[in-house]
Design a protein around this nucleic acid. Sequence first.
DNA 1: CTTTAAAATGAATGATCATTCAGTATAATA
DNA 2: TATTATACTGAATGATCATTCATTTTAAAG
Lengths: 199, 199
Amino acid sequence: MARTPDAGKRERILDAAVVEIAGHGFFQTTVAMIAKRAGVADGTIYLYFRNKDEILLSLFDRAMGRFIKEGSTHLEQALTATEKLEKIVELHLSLVGKDRDLAIITQVEMRHSIHFMDQVSRDQVGRYLEILTRIVAQGQQEGRFRGDMEPVFAAKAVFGVLDEMATDWVLSRRNTRLESKVGPVTAFLLAGLRKDPQV
Amino acid sequence: MARTPDAGKRERILDAAVVEIAGHGFFQTTVAMIAKRAGVADGTIYLYFRNKDEILLSLFDRAMGRFIKEGSTHLEQALTATEKLEKIVELHLSLVGKDRDLAIITQVEMRHSIHFMDQVSRDQVGRYLEILTRIVAQGQQEGRFRGDMEPVFAAKAVFGVLDEMATDWVLSRRNTRLESKVGPVTAFLLAGLRKDPQV
DNA sequence: CTTTAAAATGAATGATCATTCAGTATAATA
DNA sequence: TATTATACTGAATGATCATTCATTTTAAAG
């Protein structure tokens, strides 16, 4: 009867949005700029997204989706809490470090208003914190992690360290690899969590 | 000869800006809104600030200035690296936790673009990180902190934990006091830094 | 080849605001 | 009190864009 929707178009719009927003910031990026880079008309954007804000939210959803997918696969073959933590540090830093433009979005552009943070933080980041919390609790049950520590608190501390390393990497112009921080971060976090560190 | 400038006016404009920006976000806050709350005409704003962006930057400068001032006083009567670290955790969390509106600005609104982050991050936050770095290095020299750890790296980790606690507090609606995290944070960080923890 | 339902277009709309500046008010001096 | 340098005002300006929608293009189905 009629035309079939172009399945890849939405993705191409999001890809264009990553580049433009990373380069100019969300508020300095116009819908027309995204449309132009994606090779579609301005109006076409609105066939795929309710409004400009929704583009940014979708960007984060897509990134988080990949993250969760890859993460759960790797964490399934898990193991002790220590091993899980090592794995998640590696995953976090390697996934963020894989795409600088996307990292600019997640580490900087996404955080521009408390209303935005609310929408994102409660759902997606909340789920991530839950995963971390469960790992800590497991470590305590295994008797490897200190018991005098709220798992929820420790999860936030772990997230804080990972997030700061990511942000620092994004803001620094130097050509370092974020993954080079895997070792130090793991060592630092395990020292903070472990009951009886090997001195 | 003529009228003298009202010394307090600039401060009143900044105070108004904190409330408006914390309430609506930087980009949804109009200069007119700030002017109205400050009780001045729109144009008056431009006698004290070059443009809207400069208001936000000044807000951060003012906050950071207070922070550094209070911080250096307390840190002077310092002591071992461990004691300094305890002090700085307490200072950081109590100063951020003192004014929720200001905390919204520093934890969320300031971070809305990489260009903004650059201006701020390199100068002010950089200086703060230097202080933390020196504390870590001192701890290593005293033989209390692990030596197999880059002081700059450890400083970022410490900052990451503090910053995440602050952001989490700002985003959570619950009526907790940020200072209640001083104990857990200190314990976690010292465990991560110390050479030979008391088990 | 014709029909047709849906996708795509992009010029036009309408709002929103940061910023300016010509004019007014004020307080320090003479 | 008159003078005057400066602070202050707020209506007007001029740009900028997100969003819409009447029209056009496309490709599947008959």
